[in-house]
């Protein structure tokens, strides 16, 4: 753990610069450049709004803000998880030159995706203003939910980074699992209202991503207190996942080059 903090401090500049390089590479490779960071979440929000309200003929309070909030968090989770599977391969050039703790690469990916998430969050804020959603003390409860969400994502990423080195098929498996998880997490619909019977509340109990999305919306949009117990439970789970993941990666990372 002491090494973890030491390495984080040592490689912080590398993390930030690597994230910055990826962001600028994103801009330079597209004609619309940074506008895609705004356009992409808006377009997806429009698609899901149409699907939800026109195709399924349903409506909901603050629908656009609800979907934007769900997509903001889901896209962050999905991109981080998918990227981390092939992270060692992606950075193999740099990794062949000098030793660097591999979990540092995850921090860099999280920073890169967090920047994009921040832009999506600005869009959510715009919708909050549009719907005249009042800000209160409960809005601040979004912060612990977000911290737990980051930690949970990191925990998943660190394990997938390790598995991605040894199991080349894991990227395909992860894509399929993420697709299933997308529909089981209520990204563009409410798990407890739109799924019949107890299955919705069951999903909220067993699916950490679905639960965190639900709690984030409660805090941000509906001025409802978050459920402390499930969030605390996910936090503990995320800590265990992250610590065990770092332990495994640290133990095996110097064998990765032999495999990749």
């Amino acid at each position: 753990m002491k090494d973890l903090f030491k390495n984080c401090k040592k490689y912080w500049n590398f993390c930030c610069y690597s994230a910055y390089c990826h962001l600028s590479s994103d801009i330079s490779s597209m004609r619309l450049g940074w506008l895609w960071w705004v356009a992409e979440p808006l377009l997806f929000m429009a698609v899901y709004t149409v699907v939800f309200s026109v195709v399924f003929n349903r409506n909901m309070t603050y629908l656009m803000a609800y979907i934007s909030c769900g997509l903001m968090m889901w896209n962050f989770f999905q991109r981080c998880v998918l990227n981390s599977v092939s992270l060692v391969k992606h950075y193999s050039g740099l990794l062949h030159r000098v030793y660097i703790p591999k979990y540092i690469l995850i921090f860099s990916t999280l920073l890169y995706e967090a920047f994009k998430m921040f832009i999506s969050f600005m869009i959510v804020m715009v919708f909050m203003v549009y719907y005249r959603i009042p800000l209160s003390f409960t809005t601040l409860q979004f912060i612990p939910v977000l911290v737990t969400f980051f930690l949970f994502t990191f925990g998943c990423c660190v394990w997938l980074l390790h598995l991605g080195v040894y199991l080349p098929d894991i990227k395909k498996i992860t894509s399929v699992c993420l697709k299933v998880l997308f529909y089981l997490s209520g990204v563009f619909f409410s798990l407890d209202n739109r799924i019949k019977g107890d299955f919705g509340s069951f999903l909220l109990r067993v699916n950490p991503v679905g639960r965190l999305l639900h709690e984030a919306r409660n805090a941000l949009l509906y001025n409802t207190n978050i459920s402390v117990r499930p969030v605390a439970l996910i936090f503990v789970m995320a800590v265990i996942l992250s610590v065990s993941g770092i332990f495994v990666v640290t133990r095996y990372e110097q064998h990765y080059i032999k495999v990749s």
Binding site: Y11, Y17, S24, L94, R97, V98
Partner: peptide, 9 residues
């Protein structure tokens, strides 16, 4: 960017 990245690494 490669120069900076390798240097920082």
């Amino acid at each position: 960017d490669n120069i900076y990245l390798i240097g920082l690494q």
